[in-house]
């Protein structure tokens, strides 16, 4: 008994997940959208969530930073931890949680403010910068990390909405990075972008993967194969298969996964 526990300890020591969802169920009213999902996200990994439309990917993702709290009919069961701490515990503060677990949406949604103010928004509300130079520093760092700095450094005061779609999406990523999150959730970040912009965002995800735990929802198999190390296949609210991306794409264990990957449905 003792030995088993210590064994487990050493195991978790080596692969301690950044975020861990255990047996998560989500309901919209009576609609059971996510069914008993257990999934872990790791610090230095990109996890791709794939599956046909309506299978609950977004819903699951939105549980991880409690964005589902904003939907009145939504009820979440199960346990989700960030660094071992239950994020649904009353002790946990949503505002902090969402700062630590950033999110990028399907459609770029820059605020109707200047590029600078878009990026500075998060640090300002969380009080991350004491001085204007600190703030400038954070903004430029975030924009650099998002690979946007060179394109916008001369027009930081122009409105964020005036950028191209791909630039807007990278601005949104910069905005998320600026609050220094530990996890980044991306819900189909490239579905509104053209191939060139998509390539840029994918390159960016590659850049970011070492420092953040990243979960990305995508409908593109190629994208999942390109950017992720782990892949989770959802189907009708179930997590059908979860494992190394190469494995899932080359030798899926489940028939449903194989059918989906080969384009038999979905």
């Amino acid at each position: 008994m003792y030995k088993m526990a210590s064994e487990l300890e050493t195991m978790t020591e080596t692969r301690k997940p950044k975020m861990l969802a255990e047996n998560v169920n989500v309901f919209y009213g009576t609609n059971h959208a996510v069914k008993g999902i257990t999934l872990d996200l790791h610090q230095d990994e990109v996890t791709a969530l794939i599956g046909p439309s309506g299978c609950g990917k977004s819903t699951f993702l939105r549980c991880l930073n409690r964005m589902n709290d904003t939907v009145a009919s939504c009820r979440v069961e199960g346990r989700i931890t960030l660094d071992g701490e239950d994020i649904y515990a009353s002790r946990i503060d949503v505002v902090q949680l969402r700062a630590r677990v950033g999110m990028v949406f399907q459609k770029p949604n820059p605020f109707p403010k200047s590029i600078y103010d878009n990026v500075a928004y998060g640090p300002r509300i969380h009080g991350l910068a004491q001085t204007r130079t600190d703030l400038d520093e954070i903004v430029s760092t975030a924009l650099e990390k998002a690979g946007l700095w060179n394109e916008v450094k001369d027009r930081l005061e122009s409105p964020g909405t005036a950028l191209s779609g791909g630039q807007q999406q990278r601005l949104c990523i910069a905005r998320a990075i600026a609050v220094n999150p530990e996890v980044i959730l991306m819900d189909e970040p490239c579905s509104a972008l053209d191939p060139i912009a998509t390539a840029k965002v994918e390159a960016l995800i590659d850049e970011l993967k070492g420092r953040y735990a990243i979960a990305i929802v995508t409908h593109s198999m190629q994208q999942a194969a390109r950017v992720s190390q782990k892949t989770a296949f959802f189907h009708m609210g179930d997590l059908v298969e979860h494992g190394d991306t190469t494995e899932i794409f080359t030798a899926p264990k489940q028939e449903r996964t194989r059918d989906y990957i080969t384009g038999r449905f979905g």
Binding site: L128, T141, I177
Partner: peptide, 27 residues
């Protein structure tokens, strides 16, 4: 780029200042 990129200071979410600030925001 990633090697020489500047880093944003990690935030100490549990510092007393941060806690006070959050309390203020909720107020």
């Amino acid at each position: 780029m990633s090697d020489n990129a500047k880093e944003i200071k990690p935030t100490d979410w549990h510092s007393p200042e941060m806690n006070a600030r959050i309390k203020r925001r909720y107020r």
